[in-house]
Amino acid sequence: MSQSGESVQGNFWEQVGGRPTFERLVRSFYEGIKSDPVLLPMYPAEDLEGAIQRLTGFLEQYWGGPGTYSEERGHPRLRQRHMPFKVNPDARDRWLLHMRAALDELKLSPLHDATMWAYLDRAAHAMVNTFDE
């Protein structure tokens, strides 16, 4: 630990490579979304780049990067922001499929990969708001 109490190795965001790593993750994730007939309609076709930037900002803030997401958009309120969409188990599983593929492309250390995946899996399960087909 440093004198200020931080890990001398930095926080998770720094350890995995900062913003470039999260941008790669999210852009790869959206490549999968672009071909998914269930998930694509949930994203703003006219502002896919905006969605990419918002998810990148949210994830990097969550993992210890800059707080730009909250400065620009306020509290994340993930469940509330996803309520207008039908997030059923199929949508959740598709989201996880694309996110797993994107995470695999990063080739993080096993510990970093497992840590990030555990959060993404929990978050995806928490977004389910219906069991209707």
Rank of each mutant, 00 (worst) to 15 (best):
H82F: 14
L97G: 14
T68S: 05
G67R: 00
S70T: 14
Q80L: 13
F22I: 10
M116Q: 00
L40Q: 02
E49L: 03
P37Y: 05
G64Q: 01
R73P: 08
G65W: 14
A102H: 10
E46M: 11
P84V: 10
R54W: 05
L40C: 06
L48V: 03
R92F: 02
L111F: 07
S109V: 04
E31P: 08
L59D: 14
K107L: 03
D36C: 04
S28G: 06
V38L: 14
D104A: 09
M83E: 14
Q61E: 08
R77A: 15
G74Q: 13
L106M: 01
Y43M: 09
R24A: 06
T21V: 03
S109C: 00
R122E: 09
R24F: 11
P89Q: 04
R94H: 04
E72C: 15
A51I: 02
G57N: 06
R81Y: 15
D113M: 01
M42D: 09
R79A: 15
G65T: 00
L40G: 13
Y62M: 14
K34Y: 06
D93N: 08
M42N: 01
R77Y: 13
H112R: 03
Y62T: 03
L78C: 01
S35N: 15
T21H: 02
L106K: 01
F85A: 06
N88D: 15
E72H: 12
D36K: 11
F58T: 10
L97Y: 08
F58I: 04
L40T: 14
A51H: 10
W63H: 10
G17S: 13
E72V: 15
T21A: 05
R27L: 07
G65D: 13
R79L: 04
W63M: 01
R100W: 11
L97C: 03
T21M: 11
M83C: 09
V26G: 03
L103E: 03
L96R: 04
E49M: 10
G18V: 11
K86I: 04
R122S: 02
S70V: 06
G18C: 07
P84H: 15
S70F: 10
L55D: 01
E46C: 04
L39H: 09
G18S: 09
G57A: 12
G65E: 07
S28Q: 13
Y62K: 13
M83F: 12
G65M: 01
L78K: 13
K86G: 07
R79D: 12
P37N: 09
W117Y: 03
D104K: 03
D47H: 07
Y119V: 00
P84G: 11
L40N: 13
W95I: 02
Q61D: 06
A101Q: 11
V87L: 09
P44Y: 13
F22E: 05
P110G: 06
A118K: 03
R24G: 02
G50Q: 06
P66W: 03
P37V: 11
D36T: 05
T115V: 03
D36P: 04
R94W: 02
G74P: 13
R24D: 13
T115Y: 00
Q53T: 04
